[in-house]
Design a binder for these strands. Structure first.
Length: 665
RNA sequence: GCCGCCUUAGCUCAGUCGGUCAGAGCGACGCACUCGUAAUGCGUAGGUCAUCGGUUCGAUUCCGAUAGGCGGCUCCA
């Protein structure tokens, strides 16, 4: 008669004595409970409770509950695939954010028709109410049972190995197989190597949908064969599924590539090349507004502005080491100035020139252009520096992953002692500035040394990492660790921002670098006359202007706050007779620095409103006889509300004020 | 780079199982309309159906290559 305690909905523990053989399902009878947490571990509801267990219900609408639900749905998918494609070999099938996937080795890739058929078969399996039954097996028994599943066998071989965090198959201390048992006959319909846990039966899966199929390398390595992956999503209710699909639709509407075309902001002409954007006049205005404000803030914060070329001899990146680490990601070099004699024999070797993938080496040369004093430090060099990186063809993605982009790049040279203070004020500066652009929900990520890809001493790394951690902690923001995520030359803090619909984007990065100052032999003269090596801090707030532009575009769904909007005001006359009146108002607005157009087309007034609305213009100023008579204009805002008969001077003041305060309207 | 899919007028997309099938809406332009808060009407112009090559009596339609795009994987200093 085990004594157990059961966590109640109000959080308290209830002591209970239960009969031998009592299962978690029996102590947690609520139908929304899919698994139990026992001593911190998730267990099937079929788990037989033991003396001293603390049993906590995990409901399907909790984070863990959904993960279990999705994982179980992945099993249902795999069963359906093997029914429809008996030759399919199983890869892995874990839950992921918002859903799950399962990888299969199949003769041919899945088609959309296959997915529809699979979804139907999955529904049948769900309806048939198969029970998920856990069974512990020995390694030999598992090998025998799974002899026809080469990938599963490979996983069994890896059991106990490291970095299997995501692999649901063999995570625990023992190997288990889950059988799917028919509700009526108890016959085994399917089985899979899996550490579990699972929902008690397929009937418990309330809502799911297959999303897409795509290829994926087995175990994530380019060297391995490609499997076909099917992505799906599963939710605790039909409404939750519907809400998720609505979210995806909303995200699609906000896609910056779509808005870029619709709002005439930028394009990627095929003639120029993949990943290379041109900004149209309207996009150019937004971009300039973004840059101007950033420039002003940087000036105020003590940055000095520099400019550097787009091209350089290979020497520079040999010194910096970038050619050793990142040659793959650079545009191939141009060979210049080689001379040959009549016989084609090389007389004078050429020079290799590269498009620059980073600004820092150039800034180092500026630091090194003359002797530096400790009195100059911290020296903050800032540049909107355009760089070119040869991104692999499959990764180029609109403005967020381009081959040419402009970094708002600065390098701060300071003493070791100045570093903590500098990092502290820098982080505050970064977050304040991002808030001014309308992002206000952040968390920080600390990327630490990659044990393989790094240079410099462990001491330096440790000191820099600690300093960054301390600066991060002072911000009172959530801090997430990213072990091994640093660049080769130093640890990094990145600022992650959540946008209006809850997606997170990596924004600013701040990196400490002990390496480049050494490679470039950077020095300053200290107060005691000795030569010292500065520490270098790399930082970009936007990351790239193009990318930040895209993030803001999606964040605002194209409806920029007035200070960023390409057209801030559109004047809409009721009839042609009111055009001159509005032109006069527009001239006054223009004199106040406002970007304003008057719609003089021969469209009807309603059509002009529709056009301005579709262009997401923050202010429509409408004027008809009534307004002219009283020296006023009428506002229409993007949300459809209106404010009529506003005296011109007042209207101008309101708009100018909203722009100056950078508020959303 | 790898796998799959896609590329028809400025945009969004019909269509051709190889043979008057090159279409629509929006946009642009023109004419009429002069109108109070999300589409006035009529008309005109626009495409060698991504490019190159092959199969065929005949290709936008089938095949191949290339370029570009999309979704993933890998990558992202």
């Amino acid at each position: 008669m085990p004594q157990i305690s059961v966590r109640q909905p109000d959080g308290t523990l209830e002591e209970r004595t239960v009969a031998d053989g009592t299962t978690a399902a029996e102590v947690l009878p609520d139908r929304s409970v899919v698994v139990a947490r026992v001593k911190g571990e998730l267990k099937d509801l079929a788990y037989v409770v033991a003396e001293g267990d603390e049993i906590e219900p995990v409901t399907v609408d909790s984070e863990d509950g959904r993960a279990v639900l999705r994982h179980s749905t992945a099993h249902v998918l795999a069963q359906a695939v093997q029914q429809l494609f008996p030759e399919a070999k199983l890869g892995i099938g874990p839950p992921i954010r918002d859903g799950f996937y399962y990888d299969f080795d199949v003769e041919r890739p899945f088609t959309p028709e296959d997915l529809a058929a699979l979804e139907k078969r999955m529904q049948d399996i769900v309806k048939s109410n198969q029970r998920f039954a856990r069974r512990v097996v020995s390694e030999d028994a598992a090998r025998a049972e799974l002899a026809h599943e080469p990938y599963k066998l490979e996983l069994i071989g890896l059991k106990g190995g490291s970095d299997l965090g995501e692999v649901m198959e063999v995570g625990g201390t023992e190997l288990t197989i889950y059988d799917n048992l028919d509700a009526k006959t108890g016959e085994r319909a399917w089985y899979d190597l899996c550490r579990g846990p699972h929902v008690p039966s397929t009937r418990v899966i309330p809502a799911f949908k297959l999303m897409r199929s795509a290829a994926a390398y087995w175990r994530g390595s380019e060297k391995n064969p490609m499997l076909q992956r099917i992505y799906g999503t599963a939710w605790e209710t039909r409404d939750a599924l519907k809400a998720h699909l609505a979210f995806l639709e909303e995200a699609e509407k906000r896609d910056h590539r779509r808005l870029g075309t619709e709002l005439d902001l930028f394009s990627f002409p095929e003639e120029i090349g993949s990943g290379l954007a041109v900004f149209h006049p309207k996009g150019g205005v937004v971009r300039r507004a973004m840059e101007d404000y950033s420039r002003k803030r940087h000036e105020e914060a003590g940055y000095e502005f520099v400019n550097t070329p787009h091209l350089t001899k290979s020497t520079l990146y040999e010194i910096s080491g970038h050619l050793d680490w990142y040659a793959e990601g650079m545009y191939p070099p141009m060979e210049l100035d080689a001379e040959y004699d009549e016989d084609g024999v090389l007389k004078r070797p050429g020079q290799k020139y590269y498009m620059k993938p980073m600004n820092c080496p150039m800034h180092n040369l500026i630091f090194d252009a003359r002797g530096r004093s400790y009195r100059e430090l911290p020296l903050r060099l800032f540049e909107f520096g355009t760089v070119y990186r040869y991104e692999k063809s499959g990764v180029v993605h609109g403005l967020t992953r381009a081959r040419g982009f402009t970094q708002d790049d600065a390098h701060i040279y300071c003493t070791v002692e100045q570093m903590p203070g500098e990092l502290d004020s820098l982080l505050t500066f970064v977050l304040d500035l991002l808030r001014d652009y309308g992002l206000d929900d952040f968390y920080l990520e600390l990327s630490t040394k990659d044990p393989v890809k790094f240079v410099g001493s462990d001491d330096d790394w440790e000191r820099a990492t600690e300093t960054l951690r301390e600066a991060a902690q002072r911000q009172n923001l959530e801090l997430v660790m990213d072990p091994g995520g640093a660049a080769f030359y130093g640890p990094k803090i990145s600022v992650q921002a959540r946008d209006a619909i809850g997606r997170t984007w990596q924004m600013s990065t701040i990196q400490v670098d002990f390496n480049l100052p050494e490679r470039f032999g950077l020095e300053y003269t200290a107060a005691d006359g000795s030569r010292q090596r500065p520490v270098m801090i790399h930082r970009a707030l936007f990351g790239s202007i193009e990318r930040f532009f895209a993030v803001l575009l999606e964040h605002y769904a194209g409806a920029f706050p007035a200070w960023l909007a390409p057209v801030q005001v559109v004047g809409i006359p009721i009839t042609d007779g009111h055009v001159d009146y509005l032109q006069d108002v527009a001239a006054q607005l223009r004199a106040a620095g406002i970007r304003v157009d008057v719609d003089t087309s021969d469209d009807r007034m309603q059509k002009k409103i529709r056009n301005a609305q579709k262009q997401k213009v923050p202010y429509m100023l409408i004027a008809g006889d009534d307004d002219v008579a009283s020296g006023a204009v009428s506002f229409r805002f993007r949300d459809g509300t209106q404010k009529n008969g506003v005296p011109i001077a007042e209207a101008i003041a309101e708009i100018v004020d909203a722009v100056a305060r950078r508020v959303q309207v």
